[in-house]
Simulated assay, not measured.
Amino acid sequence: MTWEFFAAGAFAALFAGVSKGGFGSGAAFAGAAILAIVAPPGVALGIMLPLLMVIDVATLRPYWRQWGNEETWVLVLGGLPGVALGVLFYRIADADLMRVLIGAIAVGFVVWQLAVRAGLVRGASKPLPVGAGLMAGVVAGFTSFVSHAGGPPAAVYLLSRGLSKTGFQATTVSVFFAINISKAVPYGFLGLFTRETLTIALMLAPFALIGAWIGVCTHRIVPERVFFAITYVLLTVTGLKLIADGL
C-alpha cells in the first residue's frame, strides 16, 4: 500500500460507484482496468469485487422493483454459465494474458461505442428474443468474471427491449447484484480474496459509496454524453497501457 496505489484505488472505487449508481454500470469496469495498471490483475479483480458488491447493495434500494423482470431473469440465467467459463479461463491464463484481455475489452468497448454513435453499427430494430438474451448473459458473465466488464454485452440486449432510462438502470443493478454474488465463491477458491485485498477493499469502500450516491443523484441531471466522453478517454489510455504491458 503506497500513496500512489491508494490514490489510484480511491479514484477507481469512486468512478465505479458513479457508473453503477447512475449510468447503467457499463463503464464501471474502468475501475479494474485502472487498478490493473498499478497491481497484478488478480489483485485488482480481488479488490474491486467487494467494492462492486457494496455499490450493488447501496444502489439496489433506489431502483427497487423498477427493473424488467423478464430481462433480469434471462440475463442472470445466462450469466451463471458465463461465470463458470470465466473460472476455467482464469485457471489457464497468466497475468500478462489477463492484462492483454482487460486492455482489449477496454479498447473494444470504446471502439464499439464510437461505431454505434457514428451509425456504423445499428441497434436491433425490434426486441431481441430470449435466446439472444441468454447468449448476452453468457458473454456478460464471462467478461464480468475476468474483468468486471459485463455491462456492455448486457446493454446490447437491454437496449433492444425498449426499457425506460430508469428501467434500464434498475435492471443492470439487479442483474449484476446477482452475478457478482455468484462470482464471490470462485474468487475465494482461486485465491483472489486475501486478507490484504479485503483490507484494502474495506479502506476504499467509503469512496465507492460516495460514488454510488453521486451516481444516483446525478442519474437524471448529468447528460450521459458528458460522462461517457470522459470514460472513453480513460478507458483508451488505460486499455492501451495494459495491452502494452501484457505484450
Rank of each mutant, 00 (worst) to 15 (best):
V156N: 01
P127I: 13
W73Y: 09
I181N: 01
L60Y: 15
F168P: 00
A178P: 00
Y63E: 10
M48D: 03
P41A: 11
G42M: 07
A136V: 09
Q113K: 08
P186A: 13
Y90V: 15
V175C: 08
V76Q: 04
M53E: 04
T143A: 12
V100D: 07
L60D: 02
A104P: 00
T72A: 12
L247G: 09
P81L: 14
E224K: 05
A184Q: 02
A132D: 08
A44D: 11
T238Q: 08
A140N: 06
V222L: 15
L75S: 07
V121M: 08
A93C: 06
G246Q: 02
F23H: 04
A7Q: 06
L120N: 01
R161C: 08
L202A: 15
M48Q: 09
G123M: 07
Y232T: 02
I210F: 14
T59N: 12
G188V: 11
F228P: 02
L80Q: 04
I214M: 14
E196H: 09
V54L: 14
L77S: 11
T72D: 02
A149C: 11
P40F: 06
L192P: 00
L159P: 00
L101A: 15
L240M: 14
P186R: 05
W73N: 02
G131S: 12
L204A: 09
G162F: 06
S174G: 00
Y157T: 03
L77H: 01
K183I: 07
T231I: 15
L49W: 08
I55C: 03
E4M: 11
L202D: 05
V226T: 09
W213I: 01
D56E: 10
E71W: 00
P186F: 14
H219I: 07
G141N: 11
G246N: 05
R122S: 15
A229C: 07
I200E: 12
L14K: 07
T143H: 07
V139R: 01
R61G: 03
F189L: 14
G82C: 12
P62K: 02
K126L: 14
M98F: 13
F176R: 02
G9M: 09
K126I: 14
G167S: 10
S174N: 10
G31S: 07
V18M: 08
T166P: 00
H148K: 07
L85W: 08
L247F: 13
L60N: 05
F189A: 12
A7G: 08
L234Q: 07
A229L: 14
I105K: 01
L60Q: 09
L51K: 02
F23T: 04
M48L: 15
A84Q: 13
V110Y: 08
V54W: 03
A39K: 02
W73T: 03
P186K: 06
L49F: 10
S164C: 10
A39C: 04
